[in-house]
Amino acid sequence: MTWWPDGESSGDRIPISALEHHSYCPRQAALIHVEGVFTDDVNTVRGSLAHERVDKPGIRASAAPGTRQHYAVPVWSSALGLYGRCDVVEIGNDLAVPVEHKIGKYQPGGPADIQVAAQVLCLREMLNLDVPYGEVFTHVDRRRHRVEMTEELVAAVTTTIAKLRRVLLAPQLPPPVSDRRCRRCSLLDDCLPRAVSAPTDLYSIRPLGDWHA
């Protein structure tokens, strides 16, 4: 395998973004991070445009006194085998808080929480600062949503890492979920969930229009 950074092929290092992809759909994670498949749609383009500012490394003053916003911050964890980049890390008053930017509606307990929690764990390992929680900033409502670092969320991160590592090293792609998530996925035409999971009796397959309804 040649898809690991720096030539690694043991599966010891996992991109943090893959945790969110796996939490949404294991097959999506494998298509992106193993097969190298990625297709833009209107939502991914909107996301890229929304990230233009935070994708450029730099430091800016925050509205909070004594706090600065660090943009496009590389992070990693040797203990967890993770690496990635935070959109924003606010640092000040002996605290550090990662802020992940998303274009869609915030879903408590959703994939974004896994991603932000992983960023918190990386920063805790890297910095001699308190990293008590993370935040998700949603462009749709221009709000920040706090992600509390509960024991359950930390356990969910470690469980996701273990499951994702098995998916990335498996000889075959995971089966498609074939549910409502597929309609919002930009990889729909690459994944072909209907074709892969279709029954052998072709006459029992619903018309494609019914599946998209």
Rank of each mutant, 00 (worst) to 15 (best):
P5Y: 00
S9C: 03
R13Y: 09
I16R: 00
I16Y: 02
L19Y: 06
E20P: 00
H21A: 12
P26L: 04
I32T: 09
H33T: 02
V34Q: 04
V34C: 08
F38Q: 12
T39R: 15
D40R: 12
D41E: 06
V42Y: 08
V42H: 09
A50I: 05
R53A: 04
R53K: 12
G58C: 04
I59P: 00
I59T: 15
A63N: 08
A63I: 08
A64T: 07
P65F: 01
G66H: 10
R68A: 01
R68N: 03
A72K: 12
V73M: 06
W76R: 14
S78P: 00
Y83R: 03
C86I: 04
V88I: 15
V88F: 02
V89D: 00
V89Q: 06
D94I: 01
L95D: 03
A96V: 05
A96L: 04
V99Y: 01
E100F: 01
H101M: 09
G104R: 13
K105H: 13
K105Q: 15
P111N: 14
D113H: 12
A118Q: 07
A118M: 07
L123M: 10
L123W: 02
R124K: 15
M126C: 12
N128R: 14
N128I: 05
D130H: 13
V131D: 05
G134N: 08
V136R: 05
F137T: 12
F137P: 04
T138H: 12
D141S: 12
R143V: 07
R146K: 15
V147C: 04
V147H: 09
V147Q: 06
V154G: 02
V154N: 04
A155C: 06
A156G: 02
A156R: 14
V157D: 01
V157P: 00
T158D: 05
T158S: 09
A162L: 07
A162P: 01
L164V: 11
L164R: 11
L169R: 15
P175E: 13
C182T: 12
L192R: 15
L192A: 06
R194N: 10
S197H: 08
S197R: 15
A198G: 13
P199K: 13
P199F: 05
L208I: 14
